[in-house]
Design a binder for these strands. Structure first.
Length: 846
RNA sequence: GCCUCUGUGGCGGAAUUGGUAGACGCGCUCGACUCAAAAUCGAGUUUCUUACGAAGUGCCGGUUCGAGUCCGGCCAGAGGUACCA
């Protein structure tokens, strides 16, 4: 027992920093592109430097870290980098609220957060770190943007923004609350601006097809992207209008054409814009109210304006009224629709409101042709009714028939329409990548010559008034035209921050000074072997990154088209909220301010109770946050890491619990005590072998490896608990000491500091655990030779019995029928059938 | 509104993918050690029932010898919804 006097407790306050320094010194985690080992690129979504690391980051980076450390132990050369998604709105908000410069605020935050990440002992290659707000990063982005422009993938067009008429500025969607500006409180309206766009729609088909190759992506993400891209087959045809013009419309349901009872156009549509009446102008102005989000547009009350124009139905010749409708989008299809209220819910609501006919043209059978609607549209499948030559056809057949007739008659054609819209990348803001173009009155829009890149942000800006500081900067935008040398102006819009995050993973893999990346080096690392991040990025970030990669491949910069071979989307960290109503407003308190030891919750400061709210995602606004640094100080990095991996499956939400982290802290010490016993009880020649423990050890090594590879960390944790329990209970033997040595390796991806400290203190091995190999498994020890068989009568469990593995069916049946409990249950009834599943169960059917 | 996902003990969850529901952990209860407490160790812990046993995986129905798992219909919550990142 002499070992136990060594040090009875593991002291993370002492050990953590020491081992972090040891890994740094040995440069364990710097990736060598020239290595002959197989390569593995493990990447977590890089953080926005908001100020301090939050628990969601800790969870995300712990998962990646376990995988990176495990892959390294499996003999891979691992690239596991980290950097900063450093442009964005919060820096400008801080500038306005606190009077600090966005750059200073951002780089201070990065310094703080880097220190916090270091305390967690992540196996990161910090030599590749950068921030997207470094001119050495965004300058290359500007060069790529110009390349895409030259390839015809960048263009300008008018597009709507949220306009705050009081602050005279553009607002982000999240800054519009209930249709009002968050600072001014003014009613927000839609306003058109000339903006920059990327032609993601050129790649719609390819982005859709590519999803089929992403077998290691979650099915739900692929489905979401598929629906977002939204390929639809339909009919485009033109109505002849009573004013003599033609109105092209697009429909995905040509089969319901006989059910059309009116026609609707968007407020921006030329037909609407050309109306010369105050009432029409007032209605179009009404449609301008409110923000631009889809959720707002689609949930708003359906409103329409009868233009007085009519449209002639191509088959019946009926004159249908043409409305301006607020739910028709100019961006989708032709900006005009044939409305079939019986079989589209939006059209149904509109028709009900304006007392328009709602004919039925689809029913479950021809006999149901006269059935009334039950207060809502029927969008489902069925047979066509009340539709002349289409009646009696199935929906799909009718679609084909209408398209055929339209094409034959020359008044329409079958077309493919995409829901996906081009990517608007213009932002009327300061803290982003300047769009590297110059507007010249004689030469038009001219790219900045590459030798003049990067176009750097000016530092002397003020945020005392709302709006884009670049626009009102006294000198910055005034430059000579690169073509004609005349007076010209810089573009003052900056790029969407999603552009920054669309290629950072390339820059991590290769970062030459003079070009964005070296294609040969990219080829050694890409695609990313495992990408891990929040499911909230399932569509936008991941689709934009897929597009940007394709676009670069299209212009010959890259070979890869899919940047992320395998994707994992993690859940959020949640906690209950604490609040009080003070003067009618909900005031929130952090868990650290609240004592939860009794039945309710009381504020430590005044001892009076607070209300306990729902368990929701940790957020600053609800104050239900825990600062990782506090927990690391109290329990050590390994306990925090272990908690992040325990219990909850990584794709699900993780409820933070004080009791849970305490339990993890206790487990760290329990392991420490076990490691201390390694030398005990015979590493000698006469040491006995414990076959059962050896089997358990081998099974655990194999299972933990499989669980880590599947990112099922909660299952790996449960396996380790089981093994620890078995080792603790086992008699002293050489097997037991061997198990303890291997246990230190097994837990090292999760608890690297403890593993290193225990190995050094108790002689569990040579060298750094981080540099060691994953234990070999003896396949012969993986299978048990006895199995437990369930015996059922009519599907209900009546008995269990033990049988040798692989026992023949007849033996199992005989054993089952011999059971007294089974016989009592059968009670003399005639046995009709016996189902035997080898090594599993016997079910007797009477 | 639309798209996607989730729902199992007091709590987080497991279940070899159609074959013993509740592994493992947290919490709680009892016991050992201690003058006492903490720590640690041991036993127990789905519900109902004295027991035999029965019920049970959000709700309703279906397929099957057998359903947490598959199918249909609901309900609730979460994420996204193109300028939060």
């Amino acid at each position: 027992m002499s070992n136990e006097n060594f040090q009875s407790r593991f002291d993370p306050g002492n050990a953590d920093a020491r081992w972090q320094a040891a890994w740094d010194e040995a440069r364990c985690f710097e990736a060598d592109s020239a290595s002959s080992k197989p390569k593995s690129y493990v990447l977590e979504m890089f953080p926005y430097p908001s100020g301090r690391i939050h628990i969601g980051h800790v969870r995300n980076y712990t998962m990646g870290d376990v995988l990176a450390r495990y892959r390294k132990m499996q003999g891979f050369e691992v690239l596991h980098p980290m950097g900063w998604d450093a442009f964005g709105m919060p820096a400008e908000n801080a500038a306005m609220e606190k009077g600090v410069h966005p750059a200073g605020w951002t780089y201070d935050n990065i310094a703080t957060m880097k220190g916090q990440l270091k305390q967690l002992g992540f196996a990161l290659d910090w030599s590749r770190e950068f921030a997207t707000c470094d001119a050495s990063y965004y300058g290359h982005e500007q060069a790529l943007f110009i390349d895409l422009f030259k390839a015809g993938l960048v263009y300008r067009k008018e597009s709507e923004v949220n306009w705050d008429p009081v602050d005279m500025t553009v607002l982000a969607n999240e800054q519009v609350i209930d249709g009002k500006g968050w600072r001014s409180g003014a009613d927000i309206e839609k306003r058109k601006l000339n903006q920059w766009f990327l032609k993601i729609t050129d790649f719609a088909e390819d982005l859709l097809d590519g999803l089929g190759t992403l077998e290691d992506w979650p099915q739900k993400v692929r489905l979401m992207q598929e629906n977002w891209i939204g390929k639809s087959q339909g009919l485009e045809f033109s109505f002849e209008l009573s004013n003599g013009e033609k109105l092209p419309v697009y429909t995905t349901r040509p089969d319901t054409i006989f059910g059309a009872s009116f026609v609707a156009v968007a407020a921006d549509h030329p037909v609407a814009q050309s109306l010369d009446s105050d009432a029409a102008r007032d209605f179009i102005a009404l449609c301008k109210k409110g923000g631009t989000t889809a959720a707002e547009l689609e949930t708003a009350e359906k409103l329409g304006f009868d233009t007085g124009i009519t449209a002639k139905h191509p088959f019946t010749g009926a004159e249908l009224p043409v409305y301006i409708a607020n739910f028709v989008l100019m961006d989708y299809g032709t900006g005009a629709i044939m409305a079939v209220p019986g079989h589209d819910q939006r059209d149904f609501e509109f028709a009900s409101k304006y007392s328009l006919p709602i004919p039925r043209v689809v029913a479950s059978s021809l006999e149901e042709a006269g059935k009334p609607f039950a207060g809502e549209a029927e969008a489902g499948d069925g047979v066509i009714v009340n539709s002349g030559f289409l009646s009696g056809m199935a929906v799909e057949e009718a679609k084909r028939e209408v398209i055929t007739r339209a094409e034959a008659g020359g008044w329409g054609k079958g077309t493919t329409v995409w829901r996906l819209r081009d990517w608007g990348v213009s932002r009327q803001r300061y803290w982003g990548t300047p769009i590297p173009f110059i507007h010249c009155e004689t030469c038009g829009v001219v790219p900045v010559p590459k030798e003049q890149l990067p176009v750097k942000l000016p530092e002397d800006v003020s945020f005392e008034q709302p709006g884009n500081p670049l626009l009102r900067h006294p000198t910055w935008k005034h430059v000579a035209c690169p073509k004609c040398g005349g007076a010209a102006e810089r573009e003052t819009d900056t790029l969407d921050t999603f552009v920054n995050s669309s290629w950072y993973f390339l820059r991590f893999a290769s970062q030459p000074a003079d070009t964005p990346f070296d294609p040969a080096e990219i080829a050694t690392w890409l695609p990313v072997g495992q990408y891990i991040g929040g499911v909230e990025h399932a569509i936008l970030h991941l689709l934009y990154a897929r597009f940007w990669t394709r676009a670069l491949a299209h212009i010959g910069k890259l070979e890869v088209t899919e940047p992320f071979a395998s994707l994992f989307t993690q859940g959020m960290v949640t906690h209950e909220t604490y609040s009080r109503k003070i003067d009618g407003r909900e005031v929130y308190f952090t868990p650290a301010e609240v004592d939860r030891s009794g039945t309710g919750a009381v504020l430590t400061a005044d001892g009076a109770p607070v209300d306990i709210g729902k368990v929701i995602k940790m957020s600053k606004s609800k104050k239900n946050v825990v600062d990782p640094e506090d927990i690391i100080r109290d329990y050590g990095a390994d306990a925090v890491r272990w908690f992040m991996l325990s219990d909850s499956p990584p794709e699900r939400d993780l409820p933070w619990s004080e009791a849970g982290i305490e339990g993890c802290g206790r487990f760290v010490q329990r392991l420490w005590r076990l490691f201390a016993q390694c030398g005990n009880g015979g590493a000698g020649a006469d040491a006995n072998h414990d076959r059962a423990l050896d089997r358990k050890l081998n099974q655990t090594v194999a299972a933990v490896a499989a669980d880590i590879e599947a990112l099922s960390f909660n299952k790996a944790v449960a396996r380790i608990y089981e093994l620890v329990g078995a080792v603790e209970k086992a008699e002293l033997s050489s097997t037991r000491s061997d198990a303890i040595r291997k246990l230190a390796i097994l837990v090292s991806p999760m608890m690297p500091h403890l593993a290193e400290e225990a190995r050094a203190q108790f002689n569990l091995g040579i060298g750094l655990v981080a540099e060691d190999r994953w234990p070999e498994v003896d396949p012969a020890l993986l299978v048990d030779d006895e199995v437990t068989i369930a015996v059922q009568h009519m599907g209900k469990l009546r008995d269990t019995l033990t049988a040798p593995k692989g026992a023949p069916k007849e033996d199992l049946e005989a054993l089952a029928l011999a059971s007294e409990k089974v016989q009592r249950s059968i009670d003399g009834a005639t046995i009709r059938k016996v189902i035997v599943v080898p090594d599993r169960l016997v079910n007797i059917v009477t």
